[in-house]
Design a protein around this nucleic acid. Structure first.
Lengths: 73, 73
DNA sequence: TCTTTTTGTAAAGCATGCTTGACTTAAACA
DNA sequence: TGTTTAAGTCAAGCATGCTTTACAAAAAGA
């Protein structure tokens, strides 16, 4: 799932460490998010959205509709 | 983190199993989300938002700003 | 050039998200 | 009353999110 973190951060001239501190997560987490290693949890996505004063949908790109089934009893 | 899943589901007269199937997750996952056992991943939150044609912010309530620090090198 | 800052990455470990299978209880209904 | 459907929950297990510590390499600045 792609995101605009690197751009939003660059617009503010923040380092990954700066952003990490503002979000209350580690620098490695910010790096992992920017390099697409994994997606944030929903609570962290909310923090990010709040910090940049944007909707979650404006920062994170919808995943490409997966179509995976779960057997469901 | 609270959410409006149970209400949105009730408005459509769906069972937890119906919703689970529409989302491609297990019934237990839907139940856990409704009963507040945990929050969905961001990709699942997007699926939910897409299904109900609402923004994530309209379904999930912002968490109460945690203020936890991470040591950061 | 030398030094500092920033970014990327890795490994180990703990917490959370989600699965399957199974069981219980209550409500709906024949 | 007996049967079925819906909801709640538990346990074990695997996948993902995030931590700390550590190191390497690129970029920025003296």
């Amino acid at each position: 799932m792609k995101n605009r973190l690197r751009v939003l951060r660059a617009e503010r001239d923040w380092s990954q460490a700066d952003l990490a501190q503002a979000l209350g997560v580690s620098r490695q987490t910010v790096n992992a998010l920017e390099t697409g290693k994994y997606d944030p949890s929903l609570p962290l996505a909310f923090k990010i959205a709040d910090l940049f004063e944007l909707a979650i949908e404006q920062i994170f790109e919808r995943p490409s509709a997966d179509n995976q089934s779960a057997s469901n009893d």
